[in-house]
């Protein structure tokens, strides 16, 4: 029963239309993308690629994944390279994730159907103590990651249901605001360093990809705002947008912009790219 279910799920995920950003990258081949945005939901819900494309005239994709951590960004870069996708500049959203070197559950969920792919296999093997169970116990990976890969996703893949957002753009807007008087807090300490960032820089350099780090906006009532200056000491070329908007109307919650805020922010990023290109 387990072998049969494993075979069925793996086959369906391999043959269905892409429904998440990992499977979307795997469906691409030998393309050129000018600007790739990597990050967590603070990119996924914040960077409207269409706005940046219309201003810069360049090809842009938002590859932010909800809950993603820095290690996931590195994997995304490796996957892009694996699919022979050339990238000019990668924009990496960084904030409190600097303090974390782990991988996210959601990103790992998306990898599971492809655990027999050599790149993904070696990535999981280096990071997950359950690697052998995930790879060799039939159907185990789909049970462990059932929230994202369970029957619901399996069924949606069979019927070819498109995801709620356009994968070619990658932007998933949030509408409205969950409440008034938004509040949030950044960490009051910063790690000495983050080895994954060094790896990302090294990997990008080998592929001749420019890396640009930025910090997306937080609402005005954010505690420990000086975290951005601490982060700038670690990443000198960091572009700090953390206090770009002072009004709560731009926010869905304190750490996520709503659609109105995301569009404004994307415009600002686009104009900064143009300015930088003109200076160069």
């Amino acid at each position: 029963m387990l072998f049969l279910l494993d075979y069925l799920y793996t086959s369906v995920y391999a043959k269905s239309i892409p429904r998440n950003k990992i499977s979307y990258i795997r469906s691409l081949n030998e393309e050129f993308i000018d600007y790739v945005f990597l990050g967590s939901s603070r990119v996924h819900n914040t960077i409207d690629s269409d706005v940046i494309e219309s201003i810069t005239g360049k090809k842009v994709i938002n590859l932010g994944i909800q809950g993603a951590k820095i290690d996931d960004y590195l994997l995304m870069l490796k996957l892009l390279n694996n699919q022979k996708i050339k990238v000019k500049t990668v924009f990496i959203q960084i904030d409190y994730v600097f303090n974390n070197e782990g991988t996210s559950m959601i990103s790992k969920s998306y990898l599971m159907p492809y655990i027999r792919d050599s790149l993904i296999s070696s990535h999981i093997k280096e990071r997950d103590l359950d690697y052998y169970k995930l790879k060799f116990i039939p159907f185990y990976r789909y049970l462990v990651y059932d929230y994202k890969l369970g029957f619901r996703e399996f069924f949606n893949s069979i019927i070819g249901k498109k995801p709620k957002f356009n994968l070619e753009n990658g932007y998933n807007p949030l509408f409205g605001s969950i409440n008034t008087n938004l509040k949030s807090s950044l960490p009051d300490y910063i790690k000495k360093d983050n080895k994954i960032i060094l790896e990302i820089n090294k990997f990008a350099k080998e592929l001749n990809i420019e890396v640009s780090y930025f910090m997306a906006p937080f609402c005005f009532n954010t505690a420990n705002k000086d975290f951005s200056s601490k982060l700038k000491e670690k990443i000198p070329n960091l572009i700090d947008y953390s206090q770009l908007f002072l009004e709560d109307t731009y926010f869905f919650n304190c750490s996520h912009l709503n659609d109105k805020g995301a569009k404004e922010f994307s415009k600002r990023v686009a104009f900064d790219i143009l300015k930088k290109n003109q200076n160069n």
Binding site: M1, L2, L5, M105, L143, V144, D146, Y147, G150, F151
Partner: peptide, 16 residues
Amino acid sequence: MTGIILMILVFGVYSD
């Protein structure tokens, strides 16, 4: 029983 076990595998909640 086979049907119920199949339903536990397919519809059961494991991660949460």
